[in-house]
Design a protein around this nucleic acid. Structure first.
Length: 1041
RNA sequence: GGGCGGUUAGCUCAGUUGGUUUAGAGCACCUGCCUUACAAGCAGGGGGUCACAGGUUCGAGUCCUGUACCGCCCACCA
């Protein structure tokens, strides 16, 4: 049994959190089993990547999930929060490879596939445990017994079943596509993993000779490029079919823009228009000539490689730009690729996967791209074929993972055909089976899916789910048939778990195909089950497994059902699927949310979740997103260490308004002198920072080298967490006070007749707040919920109710006061528990020792843990708007009394007399509060009524229809009081002017609702009265002066 | 270029269907308090022409249009 003197006046979260968390774990409260008697409520965690530790964005994401889960658990739902992590294929492999290079100077090829993957598993184990540890420190109530990893056996099985299903539905296919090639990681990356960056570059204008020009025709065409090395893969030059029309159209567009433009843009547009007109006048004949040459079948000679190329006609060529001619490199440019497909051009890949030139580059073979560029430019220059070179800023696509430039590259890739799948996911949102909050995010989801672009799913990586397909290239139809027969004859071949596709050669022309050494066709066999006998039987007859792994999102897409055991029909899957809510960040709505919906529909025939809540993003003090590369992140553990997990959670909740992004200015805390140093764009990425106050150095979260790590660590913090910590402490101390006054607490029932005004007030407020806060949380209005609860706990409960009770504890109302205080505190703890689980649980345990039975009508024993206590559901009949508004009068009157005291510099211990002038109803309300005026305002209410005797020397404050006159005989500071009154006078005059203006407006009086007009009249009258009283008081005081 | 947000106190943000709020909170600031739950606290105070310009309305921070600036997403830039 704890005695109250043993309760310290600070909540020692550092000492308590592990103990409390362990108690929850031991109680088995996190674990959920199917139970047909209860309604399920399920959330699957957005699995954090095992690339690194969690940052503040994760803290936000997971806090919001835990709040919802904890509330639903208390509401009686059978709650499951499914935890886990994501293998994050390319990101993780890139990090491990980078470290391998830095620390050992080795590449992945030095290690080999098996060894590298083993290394990544080590990395994964390390970070997974760190991540799960962070979640636990935050208080997350996940069902840890069910922890999954997107690359574990259960998920792997789901992936193979999904892939197999798509394969046999013909939704999976392999094809040559232009992909974003990362020459560093040597893999294709998806569009989503590419960012564009402005770099300094050149714009080279090249001269390509025309073969046998007719008289009058030019000898050269001029083309421009930013990547001259790719000219080795050029297979055509394109011109526009109707330059005149194209120029007219461009002009029209420009004019439209000009009409809508602002002053600042006008000049630039004018000059553009001018240029266009000049161009039309000067160049149209030559542009049309080029078009005619193309029509006439004129050919171009590609310099350096001496290749003959056609001139093709395509609208991709823009007559308004450059020479109007554009070189076409189908294998290395997305637009050219489209032109090439339209015109049936040869697609010549001149690059090796590692970023060197291949055999197609002729004399340039095996040069790196950079070397090749230099040599090509030099060679062209020597031949006099370099027209000019411009310097220019170029937007260059970069790989998000390796930060190296992306090379568009023609490669064999596996795709998922999206037509039907995408449509199913669109329908699910359109018809409301999946609701996205805030609703505006549904548009982006639908728009993105509507493009129905095929999903490239293969990655040339080693870390991930290897594609379960065994392949065999065939040189001709006979061989193809032979192998088909062989495969079908294999003992383990079974059409219910294996499926065959024949991929015809992408090159239909047989001569070309042979020249390029391409197979006639490729047989692909997809095997559903891991380790099936068929695998080795196929390998025995010569088929080889695809080396590529699947896009990470392919496995994440299955998360809501794979984690529950799919494809098995487990009891869990049956009970917990579909899940209830998904809480995630907006940047993965398309990548992840959309794909989960379509995968869920495909595999389960049902959407994966009812609702999706998109939460805000936390930005730094400069409005930039927090990221590792910028170095502006905050480690949630820093926050927890300094402010405690409850403060972290409170703050996360507080800033979750209607998906308004939120700025968080960051400071370093110097470990030497504890001073704060603002984080700037300069210092934020440094491993070591020198304190501007004490000049000593400390390390930051980016410290890596031994000498850096040896320095004391300076945490990244933000003062925005202080409010949460203070609130935690306020709650702690209010509870401490409560327990100090629970001596002799008894659970004897009390009836309503024993309730005083303030009791009915606090119960009314409690009922109102719990109802509104519950509603707010259920609608994902976290910020609003926490604000309601904060105000109730701090302002209503601590500042008024507890203060009032102090008096009653001393008197005969003690027993009732104790019951009500315990009851109210009990409810506050329940309501705040989802947001601040640790401090509330700790108080709950202590309170249980002093007041084990709670309630004031019927009592019940407090639950063993607050986590499993029931959610407050208070009767609506407790809500009494009248009492709430009456009590407001008391609060205002008290503030007025205190205001006068403060301005008059009345000593804290000096009691003042005061009278109140008000109507009979208010008398009934305020008279019982007399002792509280005395205890809370050191004011002695001597008279109250409609015509009290006003003290001669007084300070007066009007509070609505109530006036307070404080007797200042012997106390008055005249000039201070005059100053106060004059301020009041100004305020009243302003309000009166406002009201009069309204009322003098005939249409307001006529048109506004009668009650609104009446209200204004009442306000005006009362203000006028108050004004004249104030002015009288001023006059009187001035005479005294 | 297309789409979506934002702009309210020194800072970070609230402000629910337009009407008692001549706009609120936390932090910061000023004054006074170690009052026996809490100085991470208590009491009081100062501080905003709600980005700008129009419009609708009896009435606009709130609705509409336009402008400026900031941010995000998508597309594209030989």
């Amino acid at each position: 049994m704890t005695t109250t003197t043993e309760i310290p006046n600070r909540f020692d979260f550092a000492a308590a959190t592990d103990r409390i968390y362990q108690m929850w774990v031991d109680g088995g409260y996190f674990h959920a089993e199917p139970d047909s008697d209860k309604q399920p409520f399920t959330i699957v965690i957005p699995p954090p990547n095992v690339t690194g530790a969690l940052h503040l964005g994760h803290a936000l994401n997971n806090t919001l999930q835990d709040i919802l889960i904890r509330m639903k658990r208390m509401q009686g739902f059978n709650t499951l929060w499914m935890p886990g992590t994501d293998h994050a294929g390319i990101a993780t492999q890139a990090r491990v490879e980078k470290r391998l290079k830095e620390e050992e100077g080795k590449t992945r090829h030095d290690l080999g596939r098996e060894n590298l993957v083993a290394r990544i598993w080590e990395w994964k184990d390390q970070y997974e445990s760190r991540i799960l540890g962070q979640l636990k420190q935050m208080g997350c109530s996940c069902d840890w017994e069910r922890t999954r990893f997107t690359l574990d056996d259960i998920c792997a099985r789901a992936v193979r079943h999904f892939f197999y299903d798509l394969f046999q539905k013909q939704f999976i296919f392999r094809g040559k596509r232009l992909v974003n090639w990362d020459t560093y990681l040597q893999t294709a990356v998806s569009d989503d993993e590419v960012f564009s960056k402005s770099v300094k570059g050149n714009f080279w204008h090249l001269k390509y000779p025309v073969i046998d020009p007719k008289p009058g025709e030019p000898e050269f065409v001029i083309v421009a490029t930013t990547r001259p090395e790719t000219m080795l893969g050029d297979t055509a030059v394109a011109v526009h079919p109707d330059p005149a029309r194209a120029l007219d159209k461009a002009k029209l567009e420009l004019e439209e823009k000009l009409a809508k433009s602002s002053e600042s843009e006008k000049e630039a547009l004018q000059s553009q228009l001018q240029d266009l007109e000049t161009r039309r006048a000067e160049m149209l004949p030559s542009l049309e000539l080029l078009r005619d040459m193309a029509n006439d079948g004129r050919k171009i000679r590609l310099p350096l490689l001496d290749r003959e190329m056609p001139m093709v006609i395509d609208t991709w060529a823009k007559p308004e730009l450059g020479s109007g001619c554009v070189k076409i490199t189908p294998a290395h440019d997305p637009n050219d690729y489209e032109v090439g497909k339209r015109a049936g051009l040869e697609m010549i890949n001149v690059m090796n996967p590692n970023g060197t030139m291949n055999v197609e580059a002729g004399p340039y073979e095996s040069l790196t791209l950079k070397e090749c560029r230099k040599k090509v430019v030099a060679d062209l220059d020597e031949l006099g074929l370099l027209d000019q070179t411009e310097e220019r800023e170029i937007e260059l696509p970069h790989s998000d993972r390796s930060k190296t430039p992306i090379e568009p590259y023609l490669a064999d890739q596996w795709f998922v055909r999206m037509e039907e799948l995408a449509q199913s996911a669109i329908d699910a949102v359109d018809d409301g089976r999946v609701k996205i909050f805030p609703t505006r995010y549904a548009k982006g989801y639908v728009d993105w899916l509507s493009e129905k672009r095929d999903w490239p799913v293969s990655r040339q990586l080693w870390w991930g789910h290897q594609i379960p397909v065994w392949s065999m290239p065939c040189d001709d139809a006979e061989i193809e048939q032979e192998f088909m027969d062989k495969i079908k004859a294999l003992p383990a071949f079974d059409t219910s778990s294996s499926s065959i596709q024949i991929e015809p050669c992408s090159e239909p022309d047989e001569a070309k195909r042979k020249k390029l050494e391409l197979p006639y066709s490729t047989i692909h066999v997809c095997i559903r089950d891991e380790g099936a006998e068929l695998e080795s039987q196929l390998e025995a007859i010569g088929l080889v497994r695809q080396q590529d792994v699947l896009d990470t999102w392919f496995s994440s897409a299955l998360w809501p059902h794979s984690t529950l055991g799919w494809p098995d029909k487990t009891a869990e899957l049956d009970y917990f699927y579909k899940t209830s809510t998904l809480i995630t960040s907006r940047d993965i709505i398309t990548l992840w949310v959309a794909r989960m919906v379509l995968a869920g529909l495909n595999n389960m025939g049902e959407v994966p979740f009812d609702e999706v809540f998109i939460h805000p993003k936390i930005l730094d003090g400069y409005g930039e997103t927090m990221s590792k590369t910028k170095g502006n992140g905050i480690d949630p553990i820093d926050v927890i260490n300094k402010f405690g997990p409850d403060a972290l959670r409170y703050s996360m909740c507080h800033l979750t308004t209607d998906t308004q992004d939120v700025r968080m200015p960051i400071q370093f805390e110097c470990p030497h002198c504890n001073e704060k140093i603002d984080q700037t764009k300069k210092n934020r990425e440094l491993p070591v920072v020198e304190c501007i106050h004490c000049k000593k150095s400390f390390s930051t979260q980016w410290a890596e080298k031994p000498d850096e790590i040896a320095l004391p660590r300076g945490a990244s913090v933000s003062e925005r967490f202080e409010n949460g910590r203070n609130f935690t402490n306020k709650l702690w101390n209010a509870s401490r006070f409560a327990m100090m006054n629970l001596d002799g607490y008894s659970a004897e029932p009390i009836d309503e007749a024993q309730l005083l005004l303030e009791d009915r007030w606090i119960l009314s407020r409690l009922a109102t707040v719990s109802k509104n806060a519950t509603q707010a949380l259920e609608q994902y209005h976290y910020g609003e919920a926490v604000r309601l609860l904060y105000e109730f706990a701090w302002d209503d409960f601590c500042s008024f109710y507890v203060e009032i009770l102090k008096d009653r504890f001393a008197g005969e109302g003690r027993a009732v006061a104790q019951r009500l205080m315990a009851f109210t505190l009990d409810a506050i703890l329940r309501l705040l528990h989802p947001i601040m689980p640790f401090v509330t649980e700790e108080i709950w345990q202590l309170l249980g020792q002093f007041a084990p039975e709670r309630g004031f009508g019927e009592t019940e024993a407090a639950a063993k843990s607050l986590m499993i206590a029931s959610w407050p559901n208070l009767p609506d009949k407790w809500i009494d708007a009248e009492i709430e508004s009456q009590f407001k009068q008391f609060q205002l009157a008290l503030t007025a009394l205190r205001d006068i005291r403060a301005r008059q510099n009345v000593d804290r211990n000096t009691e003042v007399d005061f009278v109140v002038r008000c109507d009979a109803v208010t008398v009934k309300m305020l008279e019982p509060m007399k002792p509280y005026f005395a205890s809370m305002g050191k004011g002695n209410l001597t008279e109250i009524g409609d015509q009290p005797e006003i003290p001669k020397i007084n300070a007066t404050v009007p509070v609505g229809a109530v006036e307070i006159f404080v007797d200042l005989n012997g106390l008055i500071d005249v000039s201070a009081e005059i100053a106060r009154l004059e301020k009041e006078e100004t305020r009243l005059q302003g309000m009166i002017a406002g009201s009069e203006k309204k009322l003098s407006n005939a249409s307001f009086v006529d048109r506004a609702p009668a009650d609104v007009v009446e209200k204004v009249r009442e306000t005006l009258a009362s203000n006028k009265e108050q004004l004249s009283a104030t002015q009288n008081a001023i006059t009187e005081l001035q005479q005294m002066n």
